[in-house]
């Protein structure tokens, strides 16, 4: 099926020729009806990419195709996009209904259809009762739902979401994620969401696109990307914390919750790699402890393990067991540039 959005070797440089590229040579297909997230640390180019798809920024080079047609120089008002901003950007002088109807009126739809579709969009986000109010009278979460309704009402070819949940508090954010996913599923719209929150990306994505320093690091179904990060940057970003180099296996990574600690001189299983180690730190984290163990492994020799923590103290000798099925071989051993951001 033809992708709704296609980026063809798109680059963007801010401030002239010799500036650092915010996005370089990015190829990306956004599949119809799917939820795609652009994930990465601040400055990775994800927002720049989204703003280029929306038409607020022109690529320095490369092409943008919408519904198969070259839209590289099409102004935003001619692209049929639905945009939701981090700051909500509701029109403060209009009622909620007028906000939602704005895009329908610019399309010169007949009055009764404008009213019907604005009403439907408000109903979709559960805010029919707020129709006559002004944005300032609503809470942040409600305002963002109005912004979502406003973007959905025009039936855009693609819904663009620029960190829409970042201004909300933690509990509401989780709730709004579900809401966002429900609206996307119910409307069948193609969605592209920008976020720096890996949890958000994992929960929402059909396709997760991880960017770093303007380049694509890895993309795919989160269920495939999460257990198999392609390189150290992706691994670190997804919360992998151990980067040893094992004899015979080379540079690998493993999540702390998969690292098992056994008593000293105990034997690991047949399907595990074993290392002798000395506990250097035990940090209480509520439901568990994070135990740091010095080992003779190459690379980063300190391994972290999620452990009940009872009875372990710094200086204790332990046997570290690494289940082979959780070990992920990495292409690169060194930390990539920008990984510390």
């Amino acid at each position: 099926m033809e992708p709704v959005v296609r980026l063809d070797r798109v680059s963007h440089r801010f401030g002239g020729r010799d500036a650092v590229a915010a996005v370089s040579d990015l190829d990306l297909d956004v599949a119809r009806g799917r939820f795609t997230t652009l994930l990465g640390p601040s400055g990775c180019g994800k927002t720049t990419t989204l703003r280029m798809i929306a038409g607020f920024l022109r690529p320095t080079s490369g092409r943008i195709l919408l519904e198969g047609a070259d839209a590289t120089s099409t102004p935003p008002e001619k692209r049929n996009i639905g945009m939701v901003f981090q700051s909500y950007a509701l029109f403060p002088h209009m009622t909620i209904t007028d906000n939602v109807a704005f895009g329908l009126r610019t399309r010169r739809l007949p009055g009764d259809e404008v009213r019907r579709r604005a009403g439907e969009a408000l109903e979709l986000v559960g805010l029919s009762h707020a129709a006559g109010r002004k944005p300032g009278e609503l809470s942040g979460g409600q305002q963002q739902r109005v912004a979502l309704a406003r973007a959905v009402a025009i039936r855009p070819s693609v819904l663009l979401l620029d960190e829409p949940l970042s201004n909300l508090d933690a509990r509401l954010r989780v709730q709004m994620r579900r809401e966002l996913l429900r609206v996307q599923r119910e409307t069948g719209l193609t969605a592209v969401l920008v976020t720096h929150d890996q949890e958000e990306a994992l929960e929402l994505s059909d396709t997760m696109v991880i960017l770093n320093a303007g380049r694509l690091e890895q993309q795919g179904d989160p269920r495939e990307v999460f257990p198999r990060p392609a390189n150290r940057f992706v691994a670190e970003f997804l919360g992998y914390d151990n980067f040893p180099v094992l004899p015979g296996a080379g540079p690998v990574t493993i999540r702390p919750e998969h690292v098992r600690l056994l008593p000293a001189r105990a034997a690991e299983g047949a399907d595990e790699a074993g290392l002798d180690g000395t506990v250097t730190a035990v940090t209480f984290q509520g439901s568990h402890c994070l135990v740091e163990v010095d080992t003779p492994a190459g690379g980063d020799a300190t391994l972290r393990s999620v452990h009940p923590g009872d009875g372990l103290r710094p200086g204790d000798s332990v046997r570290v067991a690494l289940p082979r099925r959780h070990l992920v071989a990495l292409a690169d051993a060194a930390a990539p540039a920008g990984a510390d951001r």
């Binding site: 935003p76 945009m83 700051s87 909500y88 912004a147």
Partner: peptide
């Protein structure tokens, strides 16, 4: 005022004058 207001309007199909 939020500078994104104008972008929101453009995204919803309004030209610069509108």
């Amino acid at each position: 005022a939020d500078p994104r207001l104008e972008e929101a309007a453009r995204g919803l199909g309004a030209g610069p004058v509108r």
